[in-house]
Structures are given as C-alpha cells and as structure tokens.
Amino acid sequence: MTGTADAEEANMGDSVVTLRQVTAELGARRVLHGIDLTVRRGEVVALLGANGSGKSTTVRTVIGQVPVTGGEIELFGTPRRAFGDWARVGYVPQRTTAAGGVPATVTEVVSAGRLSRTRFGLFRKADREAVHHALELVGLADRAKDSVNALSGGQHQRVLIARALAARPELLIMDEPMAGVDLASQEVLAGTLREQVAGGATVLLVLHELGPLKPLIDRAVVLRDGRVVHDGPPEGAAASGHDHVHPHAPHQASDSIRTGLPL
C-alpha cells in the first residue's frame, strides 16, 4: 500500500480520497497550486509541511470548507459536489478547544458527530450507545456528563476525536490532532487511532511532525508552497531534498519541513 503516487496505480486501487490538480485561493492569494493526492482504502496517509504550505487548506477543500478554484476532488469515487454520504467520513478540525460560547457536556458535544446517522436529528437508543462507545474509545466515558469547560487541553482533543468517531466512519480526516496535546493524551490518541486502523479505517491526517504516530503511517505526502514535493514512505519524507530539522529545536526556519525522523 505504500507505493508511489503513480497516477495509473491510483486509478486501479480502491480510492477513498482523490485530488487531481486541485487549486484553491484564500482571499486573493493562491494557496494550492495543483495538488495531486490519492488515499486508498485502509491506508494511513500523513500530510506534512511547514506552516503555510497548504496542508490544512488541502483537507479543508476535501470537506468543502474551502472552495476549489480548479481540479477535481472525489470521495469514495463520487465527485465531492455530488457526495452526500457524510456518515462515512469522520472529521477532526484543527482546534485547541471543543467548547463554544455556551456550556455543553462532553456527551452533548460528541452527540453532534452522530447527527449524520440520524433522521431529522432524532436520537434512538443505538445512537446514544454509539456516542457512549466513542467516549470509551478515547477513555472519557467517566467524564460524559461533565462540562467540556472542565477538561484539559488534551482531553478537549479527545472529545473532538470521539465526536468524529460517533458515526463510526470509514474515513477519518484529522487536522493536527496532536497539536497542544500533552504526552498522556498523545498516547491515548495514538492507541485510539491504532484500533481504528486495525478495524479497517482509512486515515488522512495533517501533522506538523510524525511523532508518536509514525509507526502507523503508511505514506507521507510533503507539501511546500502549495505543491506536493514528496509522496512516498515516511522514511523518505526527510530525504526528499528538503531541509530536515530536529523537531524539538526552538525557532525553526519558517520553510523547513519537520518530519520528526531521527537525523
């Protein structure tokens, strides 16, 4: 599964996410300059790159939050504009908090992730069980009735991931799930992700560095200035002719790519 992004091979595989020559603009600035990306069933693909390289924008075009100005996007073989089976997709946006402007319990926030499986937002017993199960997966079942305001940063991230898992999706899209997460929660999240992958889930995740998730990742796609500069095994991400810097060094050059791999 960790082959190169050969276009022909991509067409032959069971493709879950496909981007072909996707361009996008934020304001008047072109952020993506023709992204080609394929994620096949069961694959775990990491999008890497420095701040401003376009990795978040790429996943946000996939979910439709950022409009594309050119190219094609397909989800499960369907053009994204025609795609309506959103219960198959779980999304973890880039956030430091799961809280809104009004108090809400952990269960209330995670329940929002189950809406795609309900009719007109009516919850049945199976839906409540699925929400509880998602909380068990991230180890927060005992906090179900607590306000999210009472949680730590790492627990916020676990709530966001439980919300994405509540619909039991086949594809997980995560935007920097490890950002601002303490070590204990990082281990819980890596364990949760491992279970999902073992259960057959397909994963596309944006990362600043591979870090504790590295053993799970089949393929790394490195972006730079809105273009793909590497697509292959994660080990190769560092050797693709781009700066490699130690992940813990302070004040990185803004265009350096942090892969978290040993020097």
Binding site: I63, P93, G100, A104, E108, A112, G113, L115, S116, A167
Partner: peptide, 16 residues
C-alpha cells in the same frame, strides 16, 4: 440538535 452542531462548530457540522 442541528442548531447546536452548527453553532458549536460550523466546519465540523459541514462534514456531518
């Protein structure tokens, strides 16, 4: 439930 989801996290609500 729909209003809660959209008001809490618009970006996520899109994916539901």
């Amino acid at each position: 439930r729909q209003m809660f989801a959209v008001s809490q996290d618009e970006e996520f609500a899109r994916v539901t």
